[in-house]
Nucleic acid binder design. Structure first.
Lengths: 199, 199, 199, 199
DNA sequence: CATGAATGAGAGTTCATTCAT
DNA sequence: TATGAATGAACTCTCATTCAT
């Protein structure tokens, strides 16, 4: 656990703690970490500035707690899938993967941008993303291995595949290149993945 | 042009202007935008703080001018290739592309991280990257088209290919997943690209 | 009494009150008044912060109560000597005085420094020291008078003597001037005292 | 030099620097270090808060610079006496010493109290007093030695003598024991000193 | 009586920007 | 055109004290 927070034991305290994390997370993901100040967080959470420092080490701590609370669902929705799941039809699995990915990304567009921008800057944010990437890769490895796929260079293949999906989904969500045909792009990506995995 | 800068007309002034941009860019890419203050920039540039505000709207302006001056070479080295270049051997072209990409990235590791962290946060930085991506895509489109590749969904294919290369190169440069075999990964990527383009 | 404290009447309450005074005194003399906060005092005393304000006017009050409880033994150990004591051999009396003084000072080095630093700043601490000095002087006056010493200017003599001893003992306890010969200094002081008193 | 201050080179800057030191010193010696805040110092000095941090490392630095500027005159007025001075009449020398001491002390009563209170608490203040004490002792040693006094245990004697004078002067300045006859006390002290030195 | 969560004023410090020179 | 001293709003964090429970 990155945060030094002492999680409160009483109910009302927990509520307040949660309110602060929520308010902090919302403001930080909306406006960015540096543009959010502690007074605002307190105000939005409906508490005093002082109480923040009873629950959290410092402002940064709020971010990290928020990231650990909300980050996995937003940035790695796939990790929710159960361990014993088996892939029957690879093509439709990938499609579901992509659909899910796009859905959560669209819902958390701003959070995604703001937090990702800290990966390069903030050690603990970096750590969070790094550890979840590893987790995701390991999860997919298990999944594909258990589903009977050829294990040769499987780790490397997975990395490339996740990259392909990431790229596709971000394109679709942020819609940067208006002239592109996303359906065709999706087909290209899915075909590529298919070939990589079945090689 | 994003910057509101009034580019100076006298030679000595131009020199000062350039010095400020250079100093600013170096400091910002080393230490990050928020961790660099105007006093430092002035000191490094060998000018006074006051003069900065005669050449630049504000601190942010220095960044944008720097980005426009140095960013293309660092982040999009391929754009240096001449327009009338033709691909004879696609495979070796891709390999060269990758080699070049990795080389400049390695040289500008810190710059890359620091500036990329602002893509999500800073509108103008975002614009810069967006416009160069378009430029790169268009350039590659022309290149491949002129080299006789099938034009069907070419734009989409290029986008996927660039994503694949990006992903590969970042992995190699930042070396995040120590257990991975980069040579195998490169082979996977190059094979995929080959299949995409030749389909 | 300087404190506005309402001394509790119930036994359990008295215990708590005492615990707070003890905890407060220990922390304040160890770390200094400003560096000790009420939360710490409460924690060390095994009570809640709130209760402190039922027994004590404010944080400062704890200090004053502590000073009145512990201060005399630490800063004026001589006041423990009984009233009807008579000096037979003046020289050995002075030596004992000095020995005792040094002993308690060494044991309470930190307390001494921390509290003394407030004499100039804190009215009530000042009052405490002032009143005990008077008490000590009066006590010595009685003692010397009863022991048959010449009473002429006795008060003034006593003040000078106490000053001499203070100075000597502090030098010995805090050992500031490493190059000095403390035994010689002690002889000088004792000789001086002898001459003053026997004049 | 204790302070990390960069002393300004321009005249107007020096003036401002001096104003800040003066304002800081006056406030700190009047109200105490902790009760003086930077805003007040700025206001009294007629400058902005920001400028303080261009001239001084931090608030504490102001104190130390002030102490180095004003402290010697206030706390060790004797150090102004020239090196080649020779004592002809010891008795009258001591009387002058005492008179001078009392005069400056009376003028700087509050400063004396406030700053002395930090000797126990503040490392650099402690250092200041320690170094000047040494200086004073060495000065007196030279003076007495050159004036032909017996050098045996001279250092120890001087320390005792300075203590006697300190004690006498503080009594006179702070007038704590109203019933005392200061003239008599002075005679006792001077006699004692005379005997110590002529032994 | 007792708790400890909650308060919020106030602290020191930073730095983009301005402006007298 | 050039300087760099000066500004002051804004920041994070602390802690004696209060008060709902």
């Amino acid at each position: 656990m990155e945060s030094k927070t002492r999680i409160p034991k009483q109910k009302s305290a927990t509520k307040k703690y949660d309110k602060i994390v929520k308010a902090g997370w919302e403001l930080i993901t909306e406006k960015g970490y540096v543009n959010t100040n502690t007074k605002e967080i307190a105000k939005k959470a409906g508490v005093s500035v002082g109480i923040i420092y009873q629950y959290f080490e410092d402002k940064h701590d709020i971010l990290i707690v928020g990231l650990n609370k909300y980050g996995e669902n937003i940035f790695f929705p796939l990790l929710k899938i159960k361990d014993d799941f088996k892939i029957l039809d690879f093509s439709s699995f990938i499609k579901k993967f992509i659909t899910e990915y796009i859905k959560t990304h669209k819902e958390n567009k701003i959070a995604y941008e703001e937090i990702k921008s800290m990966v390069f800057t903030d050690k603990e944010v970096k750590k969070f993303f790094y550890s979840r990437e590893i987790k995701l890769n390991e999860f997919l490895y298990k999944l594909l291995y258990n589903s009977g796929f050829n294990e040769e260079n499987l780790k490397e293949k997975i990395h490339v595949i996740v990259g392909l999906i990431d790229n596709l989904c971000q394109e679709i969500v942020y819609h940067k290149h208006r002239e592109m045909n996303y359906e065709q792009m999706a087909i290209i990506v899915i075909n590529s993945i298919d070939k990589i995995i079945k090689e």
